[in-house]
C-alpha cells in the first residue's frame, strides 16, 4: 500500500487542479457508459413525444415479452445452478481430492480460456457435437441406436442452450471458488475431527457455511452472466427461441415490437435483473471475505 502523498503547503492557496488528472477517464465513462445507460433508463419511462409515462413498463407485461423473460430467467437459473455445482465439484476434486498437484495449474489456465471462449464460436462447437449431425448425436445413433431427437432433445431448446452456457459457466465458478477452497484452514478440519465430527458433519456444519456466501455470490454472478449472453444464443438458435437478448437484438435492428420505447423498457428490465444479481454478488462477496483471507 502506498501512503497518500502529503499535499504541499502551497497547495491550499492554489486553485485545486488535482481532479484534472482523472478528467479524461470521467469524460470517457460519462459519455460512453453512463450516458447510454441513462438514455435507456429514461427512455423506458417516456412516451414517443417525450412525456413521462409508465405505459412502457406495463407494456412488458404482455404474454410474449413475459414469456421471453421467464425462459431467459429459467435458462440463466439452470445454467448458473449446474455451473456452480459442477464447478464446485471439479474445484474441490482438484484442491481437496488428493490428486497430483500438477493438475491444478493446467485446469486453471484452461478455465481462463474457456470462460473467455463464449460467443459465436462456442455455439458452433456445440452444434458440431450435439446438433442433428453432431459427433455425439451420430455416435449414439450408430453405436447404441439411441436417437436423441426422438427422445425430445434438441440443441435449439432450453436444455441445449443450458448445456452450451455451462461451457463458460463452469470455468468461471472454478476460477472464483478455487481461492475460496484454498482458504479453508486445515486447523478447522482438525478441530472438527478432534471434537468428534465426521467428514459429512465437517462439511455440513463448518466448511459449507463458510463457503456459502462465496457460492451464492458466484451463483448470482453466473446468473447475470448467462442473462446478458447474446452472441451464443443468436448463433445457436437464430430466432427460434425467444429469450430476452434475442428479442432485444431484433427490436434494435428492426423495431419488431412496433414501439421504440418498449425496446427501452426491455433493456431496462435487463439492467434491473443483472443489476440485482450483481448487488447480491457484491454483498455476499464482502461477507465471505471476512472469513477467507
Amino acid at each position: 500500500m502506498t501512503a497518500p502523498t502529503e499535499a504541499r503547503p502551497s497547495a491550499g492557496r492554489r486553485l485545486p487542479l488535482t481532479w484534472l488528472g482523472i478528467l479524461p477517464f470521467a469524460l470517457f465513462v460519462g459519455l460512453f457508459l453512463f450516458a447510454p445507460t441513462l438514455k435507456i433508463v429514461i427512455g423506458a419511462f417516456q412516451s414517443q413525444d417525450g412525456s413521462f409515462t409508465l405505459d412502457n413498463i406495463f407494456g412488458l407485461f404482455t404474454p410474449s415479452i413475459l414469456s421471453s423473460y421467464w425462459i431467459s430467467i429459467k435458462i440463466s437459473f439452470a445454467s448458473a445452478l449446474l455451473g456452480c455445482l459442477v464447478g464446485f465439484l471439479m474445484a474441490a476434486a482438484v484442491v481437496l481430492g488428493g490428486l497430483p498437484g500438477w493438475i491444478r495449474s493446467p485446469l486453471l489456465t484452461f478455465s481462463g480460456v474457456a470462460s473467455n471462449f463464449a460467443g459465436v464460436p462456442l455455439a458452433f462447437a456445440f452444434l458440431a457435437t450435439l446438433g442433428p449431425l453432431g459427433l455425439i448425436t451420430v455416435w449414439l445413433r450408430t453405436e447404441f441406436g439411441i436417437n436423441l431427437r426422438a427422445l425430445g432433445f434438441n440443441i435449439l431448446s432450453f436444455w441445449g442452450l443450458t448445456i452450451t452456457y455451462l461451457f463458460f459457466q463452469i470455468p468461471l465458478m472454478i476460477l472464483i471458488i478455487t481461492p475460496a477452497l484454498d482458504g479453508l484452514k486445515r486447523e478447522w478440519r482438525e478441530a472438527a475431527s478432534v471434537l468428534g465430527a465426521t467428514g459429512v458433519q465437517y462439511w455440513r456444519m463448518v466448511a459449507l457455511p463458510i463457503l456459502f456466501p462465496s457460492i451464492l455470490g458466484t451463483f448470482a454472478l453466473l446468473f447475470a452472466n448467462a442473462f446478458g449472453a447474446v452472441a451464443t444464443a443468436i448463433a445457436l438458435t437464430g430466432s427460434s427461441l425467444n429469450i430476452v437478448p434475442i428479442m432485444l437484438f431484433a427490436q434494435i435492428r428492426g423495431d419488431v415490437l412496433g414501439n421504440p420505447n418498449l425496446g427501452y423498457a426491455m433493456a431496462f428490465g435487463m439492467i434491473l435483473v443483472t443489476g440485482i444479481a450483481n448487488v447480491i454478488y457484491i454483498v455476499l462477496r464482502m461477507r465471505s471475505e471476512r472469513w477467507l483471507k
Partner: peptide, 9 residues
C-alpha cells in the same frame, strides 16, 4: 450492464 444495452444506448 449487458453490452447489448450499452450499444442500444
Amino acid at each position: 450492464i449487458p453490452a447489448i444495452v450499452v450499444v442500444f444506448g
